[in-house]
Amino acid sequence: MSLFGRQSKRDLHSLAAPYALDALEPHERARFEKHLRTCDRCTAEVRALSEDAVRLAWSTAAPAPLAMRDRVLAAVRNTPQEASPLGAAPPRPHHLPAHVWGTEPPPPRRRAPRMRPLFAPLATATAAAALVVASLFAVQATRTQDQLDTARAQSREIANILAAPDARATNERDARGRGIGVIASAKEGRAIVTLSGLGDLPSGRVHQLWLMRPDVQPRSLGLFQGDTPLVTSGMNDDATSLAVTVEPNGGSAQPTSQPIAQLALKSVGFGE
């Protein structure tokens, strides 16, 4: 910042990160947004950094108060939308007119609200947020008590992996939306593996997880039970990838079909 409160071009370039974090004062924000229209470098940087910043948001998700849903949906029915973005959009009022929220009781529900698993949104979000843990997290809400007990037993193991100093995450999703994610500690040879978007299995079939290493037969790391994450240990540090196949109940000694999902392990510290 110069003496006269005017910022040089060079200073403006450096505002991408504070902008992505919403850490600019209003006048700076306005100036920087003007700058963005002509600066490709900052535009690209802001886009990447904003995606990073948004990742911080995912860990804060919390169920919204139930009454809020009725209020918002009622307001939507009574609120016109802005004109097409092609025309100049009218400025947004800072506060919505008081009548929008009203004090009237919400209209009676025509049908029971669909019960969504509490954090199911995050499962969908992985496409954008690409967080392995989001899917880990999503499945928990839909479990039965039995599964929850298993999950609790697992959760200690999971916590241990998360706490490993070298724990890292990666995931992969193919064009058909089939995904596999892992959080792994290469040093400890342990990992949490999640699947998503694989669809329902025919009865009598399971998803089996395999560890792939150079010049060695695939080794089974276990069978998935529904959408529960698989916690595995004893992974060799020269492992190159994980693969998932569909196998008959009880699993197979060696894969009997083509992998339906695969994930390279280099980015989480294996094979180095």
Binding site: A57, A62, M68, R69
Partner: peptide
């Protein structure tokens, strides 16, 4: 859309 995003929005 509300079902998908109200939790993340409210939590944040």
């Amino acid at each position: 859309l509300y079902g998908l995003v109200s939790g993340p929005v409210f939590g944040l």
